[in-house]
Nucleic acid binder design. Structure first.
Lengths: 243, 243
DNA sequence: CGGCATCTTGAGTTGGGTCAATGGTCGTGG
DNA sequence: CCACGACCATTGACCCAACTCAAGATGCCG
């Protein structure tokens, strides 16, 4: 079976899925790269606004974004929602489902997207005889945990202006990593979704964008953000007179 | 080597470390239990207030709490801190270090504790030939991610009273799981630490405890909490007039 | 062009923070 | 055994960052 997907197929997979870009730490061996390519050969298209998986649905795979943009959100009984993450090309998500074999959050595409489906049991089977793939997935999950802790810090101990600054900078870095300009972002989510992610209301998000624009930090045109003063934006974080 | 630690040693390990209690999902095979026991035979004592690992220090192992109580916290440059978790007997932590081979947060004991050291490479080596140990650790990490998402929800979209109620209920459940009374908790952390975890100030935590006491939900004596009206406490979450 | 969703802005309110003072508890040493 | 001091928790008075409500503005799609 392994032999069936090789050479040409593998090349296609490699071309189709940039999963290693995501996640590739330094010093990846050719074997690991090959394994990753073999893993990600199942693809799927998803329309803007469509749901990839629902909270409560059976878990069977992780997802790597080939192109597009998605969110994951936790829904509370009373209608409140918390967006737990935005995922762009090269990033992987869905780890929350492993614990109980059911997805805890709901994943929705914020634009037409193409994703790679990575069944978890394939990851586990592929590990035989080689440990680095296993270790690689531990790393990916650990990265998700670190990311979540960062957001907890943001939600728990930062002011709304700092949160927005941190959010923009984070997006900027991620776009930059993928070869796009770090200064010119197109937000794929609406203001309300930014608010949900950052623990604040739409109006506050909007006001802060306006304020940053007045201060010459950003230029905001709808979903188009131009970062004008990166150093000052960075300086906004952690220099607030908190006590 | 496997043969060396068997029978008696294994029994000791089992007696010393209740790691499977932590983490044991339903239907654990005897093989998995045995493997877990073999994993956790390294122990370590740590005094109240002492640091288990520092942010930035080299990562080499996960930790399972045998007895006692610990916290993990993220420190920001400007002195602000965010507690990312409290861990009690039977729980496992330290996953944040895997991503970069360095601990991101700092772990401190909140009372004299005994912990089991679980070197990650041992976990990975032990996996050979059997997949369920690997899967088990994926589950543990996934559980941590789910937990983090819950806290993000709490911090991002709940009022301070709801947060405190959720916090108490969560502790209650965890104590209950370990065989203690679900109604009578001893808080191992101080008010300020609760505040840091829940994204609010000491004074607010204190006021809410007092308020809950006035309302007949709790009886608060220092670090001793008696839950008087569990249903009403549960009802506090998610029934706020948000909008 | 009209209808609908999203975004922005203003005015007023409030939940939770800040500051300050008091009260408890515990450990230590005389 | 008590007295002292350090630390922690509580409470009150005041304030401000962010929320609520409401009205327009803008953009998008059929």
């Amino acid at each position: 079976m392994k032999a069936k997907i090789d050479s040409q197929d593998l090349k296609t997979a490699c071309a189709n899925c940039n999963v290693h870009e995501i996640c590739m730490p330094v010093g990846a061996t050719p074997e690991l790269l090959k394994k990753l390519d073999e893993l990600v050969y199942i693809r799927r298209r998803i329309k803007c606004g469509a749901v990839l998986y629902h909270s409560g649905s059976h878990f069977h795979a992780l997802y790597a974004v080939k192109s597009g943009f998605l969110k994951t959100e936790n829904l509370h009984d009373d209608g409140r929602a918390q967006i737990t993450g935005f995922y762009m090309s090269g990033e992987i998500f869905g780890f929350d489902g492993i614990a109980t074999d059911a997805h805890i959050c709901t994943s929705v595409a914020l634009e037409d997207s193409e994703i790679c489906v990575i069944p978890l049991d394939r990851v586990e089977h592929f590990n035989h005889g080689l440990e680095d793939l296993q270790h690689h997935f531990y790393k990916l999950m650990s990265r998700e945990i670190v990311r979540d802790h960062t957001i907890m810090m943001l939600l728990g101990s930062m002011h709304s202006e700092e949160r927005v600054a941190a959010f923009i900078l984070n997006l900027s870095q991620r776009f930059h990593l993928r070869g796009y300009s770090p200064n010119n972002l197109i937000l794929r989510m609406k203001r309300e979704e930014i608010g949900s992610y950052l623990g604040m209301k739409v109006e506050t998000v909007s006001r802060i964008f306006s304020k940053f624009q007045e201060q010459g930090l950003l230029e905001v045109h709808q979903k188009n953000i131009l970062i004008l003063d990166m150093p000052r934006l960075k300086n906004m974080i952690g220099h607030h007179p908190v006590k």
